[in-house]
Design a binder for these strands. Structure first.
Length: 596
RNA sequence: GCCCCGGUAGCUCAGUUGGAUAGAGCAACUGCCUUCUAAGCAGUAGGUCAUGGGUUCGAAUCCCGUCCGGGGUACCA
């Protein structure tokens, strides 16, 4: 049992004994004592005054005396206003350090037979364009969220739904047919996803020009948008594709394969992976079947133009189209099919969709539709809705080419890591391969931390003109501290200094105690991050921990400490910090270089 | 119009079931490397927590109004 729980229990029995009052759940607040106050845990007595019927000071004093008398590890207390600050004995902190040092999986809940199966869908790209910064946020969040949930004892299935069919890819296909001149990744040396994306932009350019021309001829904007020759041609391709037209399907396969090769490279650089990949082309027909079953069972209705709709007005929503009048399926149609297929394939206890918050309405509807179709899990789908990445110029739009390309950004980060390392005169002792691998880890560490330290629900700003930092509250700062500790530990073992888990120390400095306290918090942080689906909590914890460690490192010497017990304690402390930070950063998908 | 989300230092962000004097980093300025890695440490300066009310021992946090920004809103995904 944690000390916090022991204190809580003691406070409960104290209240009963002193004031004959039995507190309800969450009625007693125990929190970590503020840094500027003496003590380790603080009990707020204000809410208890109406039961003690005494002043805040007096109540706090009586409770403090009771708790110090009952909980061995609490050695003393002080009262300031209505705050009862409890001071914990050094022995307790040392013991918990010893335990976390010994436990290789400290902070991680093992996955056993009783574990729940959680499926996390993330990435989910369209195959008509390369990945950009928005996708990076999605991929990093999805991967990290999965790792965090696994660390909380869940069985994880990471999945990806590739939106490989639909009007968007038909646009790129049409543009390639019209203006491609047989360009391929092979004959142009271009990455496949970038090449296909180029034609998506090309399509939009022509389309916009056509619409403008039609508007000039007197059509309304809406008419023009649905009558422009390009869009008609793209729609025709979609129809041909759904009719399994050989030429169309062949082109579709070719272009998609170009894109997949490109995606694989980007995924690899991002360090993300999937246990099961679904393709919309394989799920949309199931979605269609489900929609048609819905029509025959009068769950949905069909209009005269034969488009299919759901009436969701009873759920406080609107009417929603499920099949177009030409019979082709829309975005939500395939999501219905994909969901059904997944639940058929796996024993899913919890399904999480990592998708941007612009889709909030979509997922609300998806839930209701599946529920109406009779799937009891429909209402349980969880949309992990994260905020957009904004540029100073506003929102990123692939069509308009106003995006920060994922591959470009990664390359740029690696180059900065190289330059900075050269400037600082680091890593000169490493081989070229080792150095390059370290640059990669640092660059990705900077990028990943930058994105994951922000609350996922909020929109975030990215200014390309001010490149991502490597100093301060950053990934490299944390990696650096870790590398520094490694260096000390290397030197220790080089000098044949053995690290002993049996800690014998008489006095702890304030900094040392701060670090000890922070380390013992780690399991609770992992749990909180899992409960709240928030990688940011892990990121901020790691930062706080290494910041405290750096202060300690500056104030105390480790290897040249004459008292060997003290030296041993500091080595155990350092080694534990290194491991906790590494575990935490790995939950964010960030690798930790051995030296930097 | 209607619905959802947000607004904390010049900039980027923490602050999570309401708790003590609202915190970091960047940018600016000042110190600290013959001593375990200076991608570090210490310091100065920077705030009407958008705004007006309310709830209470106590509000950046909860409720209502207003302003500003973003997103969604029936044949894009």
């Amino acid at each position: 049992m944690t000390l916090e729980k022991l204190i809580l229990q003691s406070a409960e029995s104290g209240l009963k004994e002193l004031y004959n009052f039995t507190p309800g759940r969450n009625q007693i607040q125990i929190q970590i004592t503020r840094k500027d106050q003496e003590g380790d845990y603080t009990l707020v007595v204000f809410p208890l005054l109406r039961f003690s019927k005494k002043s805040a000071e007096e109540t706090a004093k009586e409770l403090g005396e009771y708790i110090t008398g009952n909980v061995k590890s609490v050695k003393s207390f002080n009262v300031i206003k209505g705050f009862l600050n409890l001071e914990v004995s050094d022995d307790y902190w040392l013991q918990s350090l010893s335990l976390s040092y010994t436990d290789i999986n400290f902070g991680i809940v093992p996955v056993d037979e009783k574990a729940k199966t959680v499926m996390v869908e993330y990435s989910s790209p369209n195959t008509n364009k390369p990945l950009h910064l928005g996708h990076i946020r999605n991929n990093l969040l999805g991967y990290s969220l999965s790792e965090i949930l696994r660390a909380n004892g869940n069985k994880l299935i990471k999945t990806n739904i590739v939106n490989d069919r639909g009007i968007h890819i038909c646009k790129s296909m049409y543009a390639w047919q019209m203006w491609g001149n047989g360009k391929t990744p092979e004959n142009s040396g271009m990455k496949g996803d970038h090449l296909v994306g180029e034609f998506y932009v090309e399509f939009d350019k022509h389309y916009k020009a056509e619409v403008a021309e039609l508007v000039n001829k007197g059509f309304t904007k809406e008419e023009a948008e649905s009558k422009a020759p390009s869009i008609l041609a793209a729609r025709e391709l979609l129809l041909k594709w759904e009719a399994n037209d050989t030429e169309t399907v062949t082109l579709w396969k070719t272009m998609n394969n170009w894109v997949y090769k490109g995606f694989d490279i980007t995924y690899n650089k991002l360090g993300v992976d999937f246990d099961k990949i679904y393709y919309e082309s394989e799920t949309y027909l199931i979605g269609k079947e489900e929609v048609l079953r819905g029509v025959s069972e009068n769950i949905f209705y069909q209009k005269e133009d034969s488009s299919v709709w759901a009436d969701l007005t009873n759920d406080g929503l609107d009417h929603k189209i499920l099949l177009r009048s030409d019979g082709t399926s829309v975005y939500i149609t395939q999501d219905i099919g994909t969901a059904k297929m997944r639940y058929d394939d796996f024993p899913i206890d919890k399904m999480i969709y990592v998708v941007g918050n612009e889709q909030n309405y979509h997922f609300q509807i998806l839930s209701v539709l599946l529920d109406k179709l009779g799937y009891k899990w429909g209402r349980d789908l969880y949309h992990f809705s994260y905020g957009m990445v904004e540029l100073p110029s506003g929102k990123m739009k692939s069509r308009e080419g106003t995006v920060v390309d994922a591959d470009d950004l990664i390359e740029e980060m690696i180059q900065i890591a190289r330059d900075m390392s050269a400037e600082l005169g680091k890593l000169e002792s490493l081989s070229k391969e080792e150095a390059e691998d370290t640059f990669r880890m640092i660059a990705m560490g900077a990028l990943k931390y930058y994105i994951l330290k922000v609350d996922p629900r909020k929109n975030m700003m990215f200014n390309p003109a001010e490149s991502i930092d490597f100093n301060g509250n950053t990934g490299p700062f944390i990696q650096y501290t870790h590398a520094r500790i490694n260096s000390v530990l290397r030197k220790a073992s080089g000098n044949n200094i053995e690290i002993d888990n049996n800690l014998k120390v008489t006095s702890l400095s304030g900094k040392e105690k701060d670090i000890l306290k922070r380390i013992t918090l780690f399991p609770a942080i992992v749990k909180e991050a899992g409960d709240n689906y928030s990688p940011a909590l892990i990121a901020n914890y790691c930062y706080e921990l290494v910041k405290e460690y750096n202060q300690f490192y500056h104030e105390h010497s480790i290897l040249s400490e004459p008292n060997t017990d003290q030296r041993n304690f500091r080595l155990v402390l350092s080694a534990t910090v290194a491991r906790v930070v590494k575990t935490g950063m790995n939950l964010l998908g960030i690798e930790m270089p051995g030296r930097m």
